[in-house]
Computed example of a mutant assay.
Amino acid sequence: SRAVDNGVFAPYQAKGLDRVPAEYRLDGEKHRVTPVDTGDICVNYDKSYFADKKLDPPRTFEDLADPKYKNLLVTENVATSSPGLGFLLGTAAEFGDKGWQDYWKKLKANGVKVVEGWEQAYNEEFSGSAGGKKAGGDRPLVVSYASSPPVEVLYADPQPDEAPTGVLTDTCFRQIEFAGLLDGAKNPEGGKKLLDFLIGKTFQEDLPLQMFVRPVADDAKLPELFTEFGAEADRARSLEPEKIAENREAWVKSWTSLVVQ
C-alpha cells in the first residue's frame, strides 16, 4: 500500500488476469499492481516435541497464551520481519483494534521469544527444523508459513513419509504478493511482458516448489508434494490494505513498546 499510495507503479492490466480470482485483485480496476502469489503466515509446531511430552499442540491464538505452552513460542520482530508483521496483523484481525495489545501482553507473560528475522527464528531457534536441530533450537513453536512442512520433506535425505512439522491453521494470516510496472521505467514493454509471464500458467505452476507459495491463477495445478505435506488455512485472517496502511506504524510502535522494550 505504501508503494501504491506514493505513485510508484504505472497502471497495466496483465494478460490472463481474468484467471485470477477477484479476492486477490485488491487494486480492483486500477491495475497498478498484479497479484502473483499468496502465502499464509502461521505458527508451525515440532511434532516430535509434543509427542514426546504427551502434550497436545495448541490450536488457536488463545492457546498460545496458555501457561502450559509457556516459553515454547518464538516469533520475529514486527519492525524487521515480514512474517513477524504478518503475525501481528493476524492478531489485530483476530482480536480487533483494542484487544490485540492485551493479547500480546499475555504472550509476553507466557514467555514468547522475539528474534530479528525468519532465518534466525526458524533455522536456529525452532526445534522442529533441520537447521534448528543442528543449532540446538529449543522452541517447538515458531511463526513461519503454511508451506514450511513441504520444505522440510523436500530437502530431507532420505525423504520422510510424514512431515516432521505441522501447522496451526487457526493462527494464519493471508499474505498476497504483488508485482507492478514502475512508473517511468526505461523498458515498459519488457516490464509488461514480465507481468504477463508472472501470472502465466508455466510460472504459476513452478512457484510452489521454488518459492513455497501458492499460485493465484485458478488454472494452475499444485504439485503433489505441496498438496500432501502443506497446509491450507480455511480460516486465514486478513485485513483491508487501507486499514493496514492507516494503522501499520502505530501498531508497530505499540507492539515494540509492549513486547521488546
Rank of each mutant, 00 (worst) to 15 (best):
T60D: 06
G230C: 03
G180E: 00
K113D: 13
D183Q: 11
V213Q: 03
L222A: 10
D46Y: 11
P35R: 08
G99S: 13
G86L: 06
G117M: 07
D66K: 13
W100K: 01
N187E: 13
Q175I: 10
A121K: 02
V143G: 05
P188V: 03
Q175A: 14
A109F: 09
C42T: 08
A22I: 15
A231F: 08
K98W: 00
P21H: 04
T75K: 05
V36E: 07
G136P: 00
F87P: 02
K68R: 14
D170T: 07
L198V: 03
L154A: 12
A220S: 06
D18Y: 01
L154C: 05
K243W: 12
S148M: 12
G16F: 03
V74D: 07
G166F: 08
E177M: 07
K134G: 05
N71I: 08
V112W: 02
Q210W: 14
E177D: 13
Q101N: 08
G99R: 05
R214M: 11
E224Q: 12
N44H: 11
C172R: 02
D138Q: 06
Q261D: 14
C42I: 05
K30N: 09
A236H: 04
A3V: 07
E23L: 08
G84I: 06
K106I: 10
T80P: 01
A93Q: 00
I244C: 09
V259H: 01
Q210D: 12
P35M: 10
R59N: 13
Y69K: 04
L154R: 12
F226H: 10
T169Q: 12
A179P: 06
T227H: 03
S148P: 04
K98R: 08
A231L: 08
N44Q: 09
V115S: 00
P35L: 05
P140E: 09
K221R: 11
I176F: 03
P188W: 02
W104F: 13
L88S: 08
L107Q: 08
F173C: 04
P140A: 13
L107H: 02
A130W: 10
F61G: 00
L258I: 15
N123M: 14
A236N: 00
D196F: 04
I244V: 14
V252F: 07
I41M: 08
W118Y: 13
V151W: 06
P11W: 13
Q261S: 10
G136K: 02
L154F: 13
P150C: 03
N6D: 10
L107G: 01
W118H: 12
Q120G: 10
R19P: 01
T227S: 13
M211Y: 14
S254Q: 11
R235M: 10
A10Y: 12
P208G: 06
E242S: 09
E116D: 10
A185S: 13
V43L: 04
A10K: 13
R174N: 09
L207I: 15
P241A: 06
K186N: 12
E177F: 07
D5V: 02
S238Y: 10
V36I: 15
F9V: 00
D97L: 07
V252K: 03
E232D: 00
D27L: 06
P223Y: 04
I199A: 11
D27Y: 04
Y49K: 01
S81A: 12
L73W: 06
V259A: 11
S127V: 13
F226T: 10
V151I: 15
S127W: 09
D219F: 05
Q159A: 15
F61W: 07
V4Q: 09
K98I: 00
E76H: 05
A233R: 04
L207G: 02
S147D: 11
V115E: 04
A121R: 05
